Simulated assay, not measured.
Amino acid sequence: MLPRDTLDVLCPLHLQIAPDGMVRHLGPTLIKLQEGAVAQGRPFTDVFEVFRPRRVHDLAGLLDLAGRKLQLRLHSGQGMTLRGLVIPDGTGGAILNLSFGIGVVDAVRHHGLTSTDFAVTDLAIDMLYLVEAKSAAMEASRTLNRRLQGAMREAEHRAITDTLTGLQNRRAMDHTLQRLLRNEERFAVLHVDLDFFKQVNDTRGHAAGDQVLQAVARVMLDLTRKDDIVARVGGDEFIILLVGLVDRPRLSVLAERLISRIEQPISIDGADCSISASIGISVHLPDVAGAQAGNQLLEQSDQALYLAKRSGRAQHAFYEPWELRNAP
């Protein structure tokens, strides 16, 4: 029989069984799998259970399976399943050489095994390198995909967002407007233009003007619903699409609330900036004959805004063809 040191090198995952069925010696890797459990000097059936090709209860039964592939389960080490081959040792005992089979990856991770725990000719370590390389490549690919998807989402967000106010921009508003028209939704268009905003830029500078626009955006978001669309479409011009809201009294109340809130002084660097707003409103009713197209709705809200401006500003007006025709 080979010396133990030689067996430990050639078969680090092996078990020597004495003629009386007691464990004589364990290879260094098998000792790791025992996780501190004492095996030497105990019956081999206390260390593992052979369940294929049949159950084994003693050394004679184990030797009857010499040269055949065995499947066995360790009683310690979380019941790990191993593959094995048993051969007589020439003294009445047996040597059982073991391997992990397809469970090698889990074994390495769970027990912290390294290449020194395998025979130098064992192809398992080469497979482990391939598995680790594949895992690293897949993780790098997943990381790259996450970054690309994040960059795409960020680019898409920037493409539809006004960078100063965080509101949607003209492109996003046009897209939503066309969708509402295709779906024959009922909605209102509010065209909001700030009054006296140019004076803020002229007297306080563009930085102050930017802060005013940001404050106005917050007011609009605060007074509208989650599904409403609020967009900045020009320097001090905004469009609000109110989905499902076409009742004129309710639209008037909202317009007046917007004007009242926007008129509240905005403190910038310790000084107040005062502006107001004029609002023009058009309504889309797809079930009414002569329903408008998108550009018509925007033009109508613009005409109503012009009427509100001509009427003294800080007001709102609905699109009414006969009123516009008779406007001074």
Score class of each variant (00 low, 15 high):
Ala277His: 00
Phe100Ser: 10
Gly67Ala: 11
Gln16Val: 12
Val246Pro: 02
Pro19Val: 04
Ser99Gly: 15
Lys69Met: 05
Leu221Phe: 04
Asp162Cys: 06
Phe196Glu: 14
Pro286Tyr: 04
Glu35Pro: 01
Gln71Ser: 09
Arg182Met: 12
Leu7Ser: 01
Arg179Trp: 13
Glu263Lys: 10
Leu13Asp: 06
Asn295Thr: 08
His157Lys: 09
Asp20Val: 05
Ala207Met: 10
Asp193Ala: 13
Val233Ala: 03
Met138Glu: 07
Leu167Tyr: 13
Cys273Met: 08
His110Lys: 14
Leu63Gln: 13
Ala304Asn: 07
Thr116Val: 11
Val253Phe: 00
His111Trp: 12
Ala208Asn: 02
Ala159Asp: 06
Pro265Gly: 12
Leu242Cys: 05
Ala37Leu: 02
Leu130Ala: 11
Tyr319His: 06
Arg109Phe: 08
Ser76Tyr: 10
Ala314Val: 02
Leu180Val: 11
Ile240Gly: 04
Leu72Thr: 07
Ala308Ser: 11
Thr176Asp: 13
Phe100Thr: 09
Leu13Gln: 08
Glu154Gly: 09
Gly270Val: 12
Pro3Cys: 02
Ser301Trp: 02
Leu181Ser: 08
Arg313Tyr: 01
Lys309Pro: 03
Val108Cys: 15
His157Ala: 13
Lys69Arg: 11
Phe196Val: 13
Arg73Pro: 05
Gln199Lys: 15
Ile240Thr: 03
Arg55Met: 03
Gln199Glu: 14
Met173Gly: 15
Ala217Tyr: 02
Gly92Ile: 15
Leu70Ala: 11
Leu190His: 03
Gln16Ser: 13
